[in-house]
Design a protein around this nucleic acid. Structure first.
Length: 219
DNA sequence: CTAACATGCATTAAA
DNA sequence: TTAATGCATGTTAGA
């Protein structure tokens, strides 16, 4: 398919992988320790190594099926991704954190009741490459450091680990994880949502979207 | 109740 | 025919 394209910039795309993977390991441990994180849609390690968390999705059966399309959470999509004016959506290039491939997804929406459903299409090869199953999680980041690549995607296998009642897992992570971020602040309060009809990149209220100006086009 | 969303399914396109 | 597309509908969590 079109999704797999060698990246000319991948060697320059140095996000200090070793350090980053180390931080990921700690973040995973943090998740395992904090059941409250289940309801938290933010990432405990935002802005790590120049990568700003955008959204995540726990994959369902229908996400990893043969259709190659992933439903994205509406609130985060509307606040953190480019606003879509047409159903056809836009093409989104994302660099794979693990493989360095650049995937060409299509980000679009479907009309649904009086609202919208946000979809990431052409995800079949990505799903297959990582062998993603229901319960696994994808996370989308924005690279704030380099021009050229807009977003980065990460596939994370779910931690299939039940903390037993007797286990002394308490305290194990406490030295690493002093605090748990409170998921009380809504994205809508942090960011000005872009109204429909406003082309992302032209609205200063949506200045954070201007980094998306490359790698997609309207249809 | 409303709204998000997981999935069903009719329609269209490709083979 | 089979596969992909685009929306509809059922389910579920939250207000």
């Amino acid at each position: 398919m079109d999704a797999m394209r060698p990246s000319a910039e991948s060697s320059e795309m140095d996000i200090n992988e070793r350090q980053f993977l180390h931080r990921i390991k700690i973040a995973d441990a943090k998740r395992a320790n904090a059941s409250a994180m289940a309801a938290d849609r933010t990432d405990p390690f935002q802005n790590v190594d120049g990568l700003r968390f955008v959204l995540q999705k726990e994959l369902k059966n229908s996400d990893v099926g043969s259709l190659g399309r992933i439903v994205l959470p509406k609130r985060e999509a509307e606040t953190r991704l480019p606003s879509l004016v047409a159903r056809g959506g836009i093409s989104l290039m994302m660099e794979d954190i693990h493989t360095k491939q650049v995937w060409a997804f299509k980000y679009r929406f479907w009309p649904n009741n009086k609202s919208r459903m946000y979809i990431l299409e052409n995800a079949g090869d990505f799903i297959k490459k990582h062998g993603l199953q229901p319960g696994d999680v994808i996370m989308i980041y924005k690279n704030e450091e380099k021009d050229g690549f807009i977003k980065v995607i990460r596939a994370k296998k779910e931690i299939h680990q039940e903390p037993s009642a007797n286990a002394d897992y308490d305290g194990v992570f406490d030295t690493i994880v002093p605090e748990i971020p409170a998921p009380t602040v809504r994205y809508s309060e942090l960011f000005q949502p872009c109204s429909d009809g406003v082309y992302p990149g032209y609205d200063l209220n949506c200045a954070f979207l201007s980094d998306f100006s490359m790698g997609y086009q309207d249809e």
